[in-house]
Nucleic acid binder design. Structure first.
Lengths: 219, 219
DNA sequence: ACTCTACTGCCAGAAACTGGCAGTATGCCT
DNA sequence: AGGCATACTGCCAGTTTCTGGCAGTAGAGT
């Protein structure tokens, strides 16, 4: 898995086998067993193998308390994240539930830590989804924003993080108009579209610089 | 693992081996390798084997979105749960980070979904911790409670769930005084102590009945 | 002292894995 | 259309690993 993950383009079985020090025949068998375990490895004749992005977690041991924390966290994301993120959280729980024995599954589903409904009406989810997509793709966004006094403006921003507060969510970005870090409440973003232009700096560096500027501890 | 989990008392290796259809010698070897993988199996000469409570997750594959959801959920619990639950959430992330290759670890730590600070000052964490302990042990609680008009009362309750709202947390319980389901805000609980007496009904049944009574969907 | 039990080293037989070979199917390039 | 690179499968012998029995040590409870 680790070897295959290093490549972002299809790589031939022959090459993989020589890197791992095994024969081609064994490689085919190993890949088949990895696929049986759920790894998303795509193989095409004439092309090679490609690992679809994702995480492979080895066997892991969790205490009761840790499982409760995991379930509670997933439930929170499921109810407070945007639609896609919520579905991802439910998928996590479904995957975990699918592989544990039946006696434990009940313990999972019966977990007694519940997330209550949101205090405020959720705004349009698709804004958050599109912001997250832009962050991941490291692309600039053009937004119509109304500030706290209601003054409308149109800005080009470099989004690199989303902050979840109890009742609101803010996009953390570099603002080209103001030439500085700014926060934008998602419920005050009117129109939004993703630009072709890439953000000229790495997301990780922007985040680090913003943390130093604001004095925010890593989480 | 599954075989061993069924027992709540120490069980001899001989018995385990015959249930699994392997020899004693092999069982010792298998247990050694499970322990090497992180399973909490305790073996004492003259007593037998005992599995400390916990979950063993087999290898699992997650997509990028699912990992983001998992990280975000853990961060929320880490900042909004009580001290023990928060530590458990951080342990989950630490365990995951410990077993994934270095390139991926950075992706985890750099995850750009952040949880902001709580809007209100958190009340005494230990109340929530003790309520959760009572729920897990299925023990009655005696609490001093002030209702919304501030009238103080002392009640014996059967706690079976905790609801997390944006700014407050409520204990869901059967109230012996009112002979019905009641909710108690944790910030209005004054004194609290756990009683020796067990709750006469199963937590799971109480939760189910409360859901039907309140019309709450399972999460 | 005795029994029950966990745990280790050793070794032969059993099981699983590995690597090579031959062969089929599919996509890309000329 | 044809050649080439590649994924993928069945078969079989050689190698490695796993298994089960035996003998023995050590700790806990009676």
């Amino acid at each position: 898995m680790q070897t295959l993950r290093r490549y972002r383009y299809p790589v031939s079985g022959k090459q993989l086998a020589s890197e791992l020090g095994v024969s081609i025949r064994t490689l085919y068998r190993d890949i088949a067993s990895l696929q049986a375990q759920g790894a998303h490895i795509e193989g095409e004749p004439g092309v090679g193998y490609l690992l679809r992005p994702g995480f492979m977690l080895p066997p892991l041991m969790f205490s009761d308390e840790e499982i409760e924390a995991l379930v509670l966290g997933s439930r929170w994301v499921s109810r407070r994240g945007d639609a896609k993120l919520g579905e991802a959280a439910r998928n996590v729980m479904a995957k975990v539930a699918a592989v544990i024995p039946a006696e434990l599954r009940q313990e999972l589903e019966t977990s007694t830590l519940l997330i209550g409904p949101a205090a405020t009406q959720p705004e349009d989810d698709s804004i958050l989804e599109r912001v997250r997509a832009a962050i991941r793709a490291e692309r600039k966004l053009c937004i119509a924003y109304g500030d706290s006094e209601g003054n409308p403006s149109t800005r080009i921003i470099w989004p690199f993080a989303v902050g979840f507060f109890d009742t609101i969510r803010v996009v953390v970005a570099w603002c080209e108009l103001r030439k500085g870090f700014r926060h934008f409440r998602t419920d005050r973003i009117g129109e939004l579209h993703s630009l072709e232009a890439r953000i000229p700096r790495r997301r990780h560096d922007l985040l680090k610089e913003w943390r130093e500027y604001k004095g925010v501890e890593p989480q």
